[in-house]
Design a protein around this nucleic acid. Structure first.
Lengths: 334, 334
DNA sequence: TTTTAGCATTTTAGTGTTGACATTGCTAAA
DNA sequence: TTTAGCAATGTCAACACTAAAATGCTAAAA
C-alpha cells in the first residue's frame, strides 16, 4: 500500500513524463512537495522497489514503468473533460443528417484523431444489424447486372453480377421480386439462412433457371455481409510526431502491425466501459498503448480505439471516449 | 554528345547506385572497363561537367544527378520484362470475373506494390465519362431519403438527403421522374449544366416545392461528382525500407504529401505512354520519382502510378507498367 | 593524343579524451 | 523522519586524432 505522498510523487512523475518525455528528477519534485530532494529520493527508491518506477541508468531521473502507468490509470488519474469547442465539433458531425452512418463514424474518428493527435480507429461499423430494405437490380450492357442491397438505415452495398446470357431480364426480375417479398426486414447477417429456408424451397415454382439465379444472389449476399466487417483508421502516422518514435525501424514495425491488425482481437473480447491496454498489453509494441470503448448507436455496434505512445495523455483520451460513449450512443437517434 | 565509354560509365554508375545506394568510385568501374581508375576519373569529370553526375564532397564517389537519371531513363535503360510468375498473378486478378472493375483495379495495384516494393496508386477510375443510367430514391425513416445515382458502367454513388417534412413523397417522385426523363444518358460531369438548362426552367410546371427539391438534387450531383475523383493507394509505407528515408522527418514530409495529393495534377495532364517524373519533377520531394501510365479498360479511364525513391529500379517499373498498359487495357474484355 | 602511375588533398567515419552537468545513493547530523 | 553534504555514476557535447576512401592534378609512358 502506498502512502499519500508516494502516490503524489508517482502521479507527478507520470504526468510530467507524459508532458516532457524526459525522466523526472528528485529536484523538480521537491519544489512542489515542500521537502528536500533527499526525501523524495528515499520515496523514489521505495516506488522503484514496487516496480512502479524505472531508471535508464544510475544517474538518470525516474520514469514510470508499465506497472506505474497502470497504477496511475487505475488509481490516480482523473479523466479530463473535453473542451467545449471539441464537444461542439463532435456534436456537429453526429447531427449532420446528410451523412450516412458509416460516413459519420469515419468523419468522427478523423476528428478524434485531430483532437488527440493520436491514431484512431473504428472497428466494426457492423451493418449486420441493419435490416434489408430493398434489393434492386439494374441491367447494364452485355450480361451484367448491377445489384444493390439497401438497408433501413440507408446503408448501400452494390455488386456487379455476371449472369449467363441465357437468363432473361424477366426471370431475373421475378427472382428479385421474390427476394423482396420474402426477405425484406431481415437483419443482414441472417439473410443467408432466410434465403435457404424461405426462398430456396419455393423459388422453383416461380423462376425457370432458379439454380443459377439463387446461387448468384446467395453468394452476393454472403460477400456483401463479409465485406462489411472491417477496420478504418484515421491519423495512422500521427505518432511520427512523438519523440520516442524517432527511429524509422520503430515506425515501420508499428505500421506493419497496423496492417496485420491481429491486435484487434483483443479489442472485441472485453467488457463494456473504457478499457486501457498499456505497452505489452496492447499486442502492438511495448511502446504504445490503446484506449478503446464500444459504441452502440441505435443498434449499430462497433469499437472505437485510440492508439498512441505509452506516454499517452490517458486522462484526456479516457475523458474523450467516455464522452463519446455516454453522449453519442444514447441520446442520438441516428 | 557522349562517347560510348561515357555512356557505359554513366549506365554503370546509375545501376550500381540504384542497387547499393552508395556513391560509386572510379576503382569499381575500372575493373569492368579494363582501364585504369585514372582514365575513368577523367571521364567522370566530363560527365560531371555535363551535370549528369554529382559528388557529395570532394572525395566521395559519384552518383547520378537528376539529369543523370533522366538521361539514363531516356537513352540508356532497357525496360525489363516481368517475371512469368508475376505476369500470371496479374492476369489472374484481371480475369477474375466476380470482382467489379474498381475492386479489380485496387487488387491489382496492391499486387503491383508487392512486386515492386514501392508505393502504388490508382487515380481516377474517372466515372466522369460514365453516363447517367438512373436516379433512384428510397425513403427511409423520418424525412430522410436515400438517393442513388447509377451509371451505365455500373458505378453507384449514394447519399442521404434530408428534406423538410413538408415535402411529400409524391412531389419527390415527380422530381426524380423529371430528372430521369431529361438527364439520363448525360456524362456525369455535364449533369450540372444539363440540370441548369433543361430541368430548372420547366420544373416549376410539374413540381410544387420545386426550389428546395431542385437545389437539393443539384447539390447532391455536384457533391457526387467531386467525391468521385479519388485516389487509392497501396503500400503507402513501402519506402520506409529505403535507406535514403532514414529520418522520420523525411518520412513525415512524404506521407503528408500523400494526403494532400496536390501532386496528382501532374499525372492527369500528360500524354499516353509510360511517363517518368524524376525528383523535383515529381512535385512530391526531390528524393522520389513517379512512373505513371494511363489505362483504359473498356472505356473506363484512369492512371496507375508507382512512387518510389529517385533511386528507383526504373527498368523494372517501366517494364511492369508497359506490360499492364499493353496487355490489360486492350485484350481484356471487362 | 590518350592513358596511366604517383602523390598531395579533401572529407568522412570512427575512436578516445576531456570537462561540464545532472542526478543518484549513502552517511551522518538535525 | 528529514535533511545537508558529498562521492559516485553516467550522459553529452566538444575536440582532437587516425585511418580509409576517393578525388584532382601532374608528369611520364604508350
Amino acid at each position: 500500500m502506498l502512502s499519500e505522498r508516494q502516490k503524489e510523487i508517482l502521479k507527478y512523475i507520470v504526468e510530467e513524463y507524459i508532458k516532457s518525455a524526459k525522466p523526472v528528477s528528485s529536484n523538480k519534485i521537491c519544489n512542489i512537495l515542500n521537502c528536500s530532494s533527499a526525501t523524495v529520493r528515499n520515496e523514489m527508491v521505495i516506488l522503484e522497489e514496487c516496480h512502479l518506477l524505472e531508471k535508464n541508468h544510475f544517474a538518470s531521473g525516474r520514469q514510470p514503468s508499465e506497472e506505474g502507468y497502470r497504477y496511475y490509470v487505475n488509481n490516480l488519474m482523473q479523466p479530463k473533460n473535453m473542451s467545449g469547442e471539441d464537444m461542439l465539433k463532435l456534436q456537429t458531425i453526429f447531427h449532420n443528417n446528410s451523412l450516412d452512418l458509416s460516413d459519420t463514424i469515419k468523419k468522427s474518428i478523423e476528428l478524434v484523431s485531430e483532437i488527440t493527435n493520436y491514431t484512431a480507429l473504428v472497428l466494426g461499423k457492423n451493418a449486420k444489424n441493419n435490416r434489408l430494405k430493398k434489393v434492386q437490380t439494374v441491367p447494364l450492357e452485355e450480361n451484367k447486372v448491377l445489384t444493390m442491397v439497401i438497408t433501413d438505415k440507408g446503408f448501400v452495398e452494390h455488386k456487379i453480377l455476371s449472369l449467363p446470357s441465357s437468363i432473361s431480364t424477366n426471370e431475373l426480375q421475378k427472382t428479385v421480386d421474390l427476394i423482396n417479398r420474402l426477405v425484406i426486414g431481415t437483419p443482414l447477417d441472417e439473410i443467408s439462412e432466410k434465403l435457404e429456408y424461405s426462398v430456396k424451397p419455393i423459388i422453383g415454382k416461380y423462376v425457370k433457371q432458379h439454380e443459377i439465379l439463387y446461387n448468384t444472389f446467395y453468394d452476393a449476399f454472403n460477400e456483401i455481409n463479409h465485406k462489411n466487417n472491417d477496420v478504418h483508421f484515421a491519423g495512422k502516422t500521427k505518432f511520427l510526431n512523438q519523440p520516442e518514435f524517432n527511429s524509422v525501424d520503430k515506425v515501420k514495425d508499428i505500421l506493419n502491425k497496423f496492417d496485420n491488425i491481429s491486435f484487434v482481437e483483443k479489442m472485441t473480447e472485453e467488457d463494456n466501459g473504457v478499457n486501457v491496454y498499456i505497452g505489452s498489453d496492447s499486442d502492438i509494441s511495448d511502446d504504445v498503448s490503446i484506449v478503446k470503448t464500444k459504441y452502440n448507436i441505435d443498434g449499430d455496434e462497433g469499437t472505437i480505439a485510440i492508439i498512441g505512445p505509452k506516454r499517452m495523455e490517458y486522462d484526456k483520451v479516457v475523458g474523450l471516449l467516455d464522452y463519446i460513449k455516454q453522449n453519442i450512443g444514447g441520446q442520438n437517434e441516428k
